[in-house]
Every structure is written in structure tokens, then in C-alpha cells.
Design a protein around this nucleic acid. Structure first.
Length: 302
DNA sequence: AATACGGGGGG
DNA sequence: CCCCCAGTATT
């Protein structure tokens, strides 16, 4: 174990990527980066992070923002419900935690959009607390090196991976060890691994299998995106985000280029956006965010 | 345990 | 065209 640790740390020191949230010791910055990183390649995280932090430099600023502004800052980063969760988490921190992120695992996990990974990132980067942040990269690296898996998610149970991650973490090093392991999985121990460049190949339990030419099977099959609900939701939201203000329903469907036969379905999807706090719809008008904006005609006031 | 949830990078 | 991504919430 010790040799694996030292070699990976040595690799990390030579390939260090200096993301601002890694060294800022700012729990809010860590939170924003962690949420932006959920199911998203790092190359796309930095721009989202910069936009968000420029628009809402502090937890309180995020809490006081309106939903439409939050969604515009999120832009095309994907999974916009993450922006809603971030917004709501900021509000709860102000309402219930004295305007700060809790430094406690269970309290963090109680916040919307915060799961085991995000909570661990807040703890280790934000507070310097030792918490193993086990992302998909780390699952793969530990699965292979420790357990000899080709494609860990399909072989070794997650609980065993987590236990190994906790065992590998030396006290006081989480803020360096977590990103070292994550980066290694992203750059070397990739889904199709670069075993020729691997600094722990001689210690890797999976080495014989890969050396024999075994190929890792795809982790999770993915449905078609074209024509999916997800694509339509994304298109609607994009139109709403880029609009100056409220739109007629008909104008929304037209701008989103919805064919006649898809209109009932896409109208229903607008309903799901509203349910998610991403859009509102009222009296034939609709818009970005959670509440009808001024230009929309109000119902007769009593 | 299985699905839903965006959008784009990279082979 | 296909795989995958610093996951989380819901069913």
C-alpha cells in the first residue's frame, strides 16, 4: 500500500493541475466546483466555476440571487437541476447554518445536490478535513490496482472500494491524495488504460489481465440522446435562458423548433421543467426560473 | 437495483 | 457512431 501511495503522489507532484478550488481552502468554492464536476469532464468545469463565482462570489450572494440569474450563470453546463440545488443549498446555509457550509459530513449530506462525493470535496478542499472523495476515477483506479478488476463498477462491490479508499488515505493528506488519485484515473488509468505509462503497473493486481489483452467492457449503456426527453428539456431551457423575458407558449415551441406532432409531448416536458424549479408557466406565458416575471400578464387581482 | 437527468469531449 | 464524464435523487 505504501509503495502505491508514494508512487502516485510522486506522479501527482509532477503533473499537478492547479485548479483554484484545490488550494483556496474555501468551502463555498469547493462546493461550487464539486457540483459543477458531477458527471462532467474537468475541461468543462473551470468555465462554469468562473462564471458562477464571478456572478455569486459568496454563499450569501448565491442565496440572494434569483433563480433565473442562477440558471443563466449555469449556462450550458448541463444538468441544470444542479444549479437549482446549489441555489437552494446556499439559501439553507444562510437560513440554518449561519451563512456557512457545515463542516460536518451528515449536515452536508442533508443539503440538496450534495452526496458523498461532493460532501467529501467540501470537507477536504474547503476545511482540510480527511475525507475520501471517491469519484468514478478513484473507483476505477482502486478497483484495478487493489482488486484486479478490469472495469471496477461491474466487479468489486462499491463498499469494498470505499473501504480500500479509506484505508489508503493517510491522515492529514486528503487534500493532496484525493486529487492525485482522481487525476491519475483521468489521465493514466482511463477506461482504456495506458498501462505503458503507469507508475504502479508492477504493483497492479489487474496487470496480468490487461497484459493478456483483456478489454474492459462498457460500464453503463446509454440511451439515445437525439429525440430524448432530455434533449427537448435542454432545448426548451436554452430558449428560455436566452430570451429577454417571458414568452408565449407558442413562441417557445416555435423557437425550440418543435414539430407539430411533438408539441403535446414537449408541452408536458415544460411541465417537468416547472416542477424542477427551472421554469414557470402561467396563463399562456412562460419563462426562466421559478416565478413569473413582471412582463407576464397577471391574473386579475381579486 | 434501475432510471432520469445535459451537453460535449474524444476515440 | 459510441463511450464516457470529480454524481445525485427518485422510484
Amino acid at each position: 500500500m505504501g509503495r502505491i501511495r508514494s508512487r502516485l503522489l510522486e506522479w501527482y507532484d509532477a503533473h499537478l493541475q492547479d485548479f483554484p478550488w484545490r488550494t483556496a481552502r474555501d468551502p463555498y468554492a469547493a462546493l461550487v466546483a464539486a457540483v459543477a464536476a458531477q458527471q462532467t469532464q474537468m475541461s468543462r468545469v473551470l468555465p462554469t466555476y468562473e462564471r458562477w463565482m464571478t456572478a455569486f462570489p459568496t454563499l450569501r450572494a448565491a442565496a440572494e440571487a434569483d433563480r433565473a440569474a442562477v440558471l443563466r450563470a449555469w449556462g450550458r453546463a448541463g444538468y441544470p437541476r444542479r444549479a437549482v440545488a446549489l441555489h437552494e443549498t446556499a439559501r439553507r446555509c444562510v437560513a440554518q447554518h449561519d451563512g456557512r457550509l457545515p463542516a460536518d459530513l451528515d449536515a452536508l449530506l442533508a443539503l440538496p445536490g450534495v452526496g458523498p462525493f461532493t460532501a467529501a470535496i467540501v470537507l477536504c478542499f474547503g476545511y482540510g478535513i480527511d475525507a475520501p472523495a471517491v469519484d468514478t476515477n478513484i473507483v476505477r483506479v482502486i478497483g484495478r490496482v487493489v482488486f484486479g478488476d478490469l472495469q471496477p463498477a461491474a466487479e468489486t462491490p462499491r463498499g469494498a472500494i470505499d473501504a480500500a479508499a479509506a484505508r489508503l488515505l493517510r491522515p492529514g493528506t486528503a487534500a493532496r491524495w484525493n486529487p492525485a488519485l482522481m487525476d491519475y484515473g483521468a489521465r493514466v488509468c482511463t477506461p482504456r488504460p495506458k498501462c505503458g505509462e503507469c507508475v504502479v503497473a508492477s504493483l497492479c493486481a489487474a496487470r496480468p489481465r490487461f497484459a493478456a489483452g483483456a478489454v474492459a467492457e462498457p460500464v453503463r449503456a446509454q440511451g439515445r440522446f437525439d429525440g430524448s426527453d432530455r434533449q427537448w428539456r435542454g432545448r426548451l431551457l436554452r430558449v428560455l435562458r436566452e430570451a429577454d423575458g417571458p414568452l408565449r407558449l407558442g413562441a417557445l415551441l416555435k423557437a425550440a423548433d418543435v414539430p407539430a406532432e411533438e408539441k403535446p409531448r414537449v408541452r408536458a416536458l415544460l411541465g417537468t421543467l416547472c416542477a424542477d424549479g427551472l421554469a414557470w408557466s402561467d396563463g399562456g406565458w412562460c419563462g426562466l426560473g421559478s416565478e413569473a416575471q413582471a412582463p407576464a400578464p397577471r391574473r386579475p387581482a381579486r
